[in-house]
Nucleic acid binder design. Structure first.
Lengths: 138, 138
DNA sequence: CGCAAATATTTGAGCACATCAACTATCGAC
DNA sequence: GTCGATAGTTGATGTGCTCAAATATTTGCG
């Protein structure tokens, strides 16, 4: 489990780096930072700030600035929660949805995953998704 | 190639995120930032600043601060190039090598890749490594 | 009811990292 | 020897992150 695995680990972490690069390039092409792309990607439904922080496993104060900048760009809005006035819900604007779509198009266009044969893609899918209980953010 | 692949892309980019998280946690456990872990990981041989910038695909000025902080921590040293006085070569100290080893141990200990069955690991290796000509940095 | 504890968000300080433009030093070539 | 390329640094600026502290609101309990 220790020595023979070194190459396995190295290969996979290099792979992850390439995926990360794709992600960053696609975000840049849509005039987004990676963090911004992730946040608007979470907003298929309006979400309280705190929920965004929980899903990103980061400090709530971090979300404030992130949403500030997304709001400046006109991609999201903050609206009050109907019953709890402490809560602000973040929601995609029409432009935000459009931008997210652009990001996804760009990502699937440039993704290094396109270089894989269908057979390799199948093998990836049957090995990867079993990975642990991370689904929808702890 | 467009619609059915969406889930494929999503799954893999989530996977990459988990690998990234592992990397960050292992780095933190070795008292390193992710960027610092990457840099000292490149120093199996002493390398000019510019080469580090090339391998990280970033601006040379970025490397200056990164190496500054690594030097402050006693993990690397800058030494002059024997023939070209413009060049500074960055080299791991003994402590730097030790720290890198600690990082690698930690990474292989906590890696989410450990949750995969040997069969899944085999499938990963036979699908991933064919990915493109990125070997040793463009 | 009334007040203390918990919760949601923001603010501000501070650090790491990234890019860009400008600068210094050195090299290489003519 | 001077000029243009190259290596590295510096400074300005923006983003992302964490932490501690402040504000507003809700909740629960005597």
């Amino acid at each position: 489990m220790t020595s023979a695995n070194n190459e396995f680990f190295a290969t996979l972490y290099v792979f992850a780096e390439r995926l990360r690069d794709d992600y960053e390039k696609a975000a840049a092409a849509a005039d987004l930072t990676p963090a911004q792309a992730i946040v608007i990607g979470l907003l298929s439904e309006p979400l309280p700030m705190g929920d965004l922080a929980a899903r990103r496993h980061c400090d709530p104060s971090n979300i404030t600035g992130l949403v500030d900048r997304l709001e400046d760009k006109g991609l999201v809005t903050r609206s009050p929660h109907p019953t709890d006035r402490r809560v602000k819900r973040v929601e995609l604007t029409a432009e935000g949805r459009h931008r997210l779509a652009r990001f996804h198009e760009e990502l699937s266009r440039i993704s290094c995953l396109n270089e894989l044969t269908p057979d390799q893609q199948r093998r990836l899918l049957t090995s990867v998704p079993s990975l642990g209980p991370d689904t929808s953010g702890q």
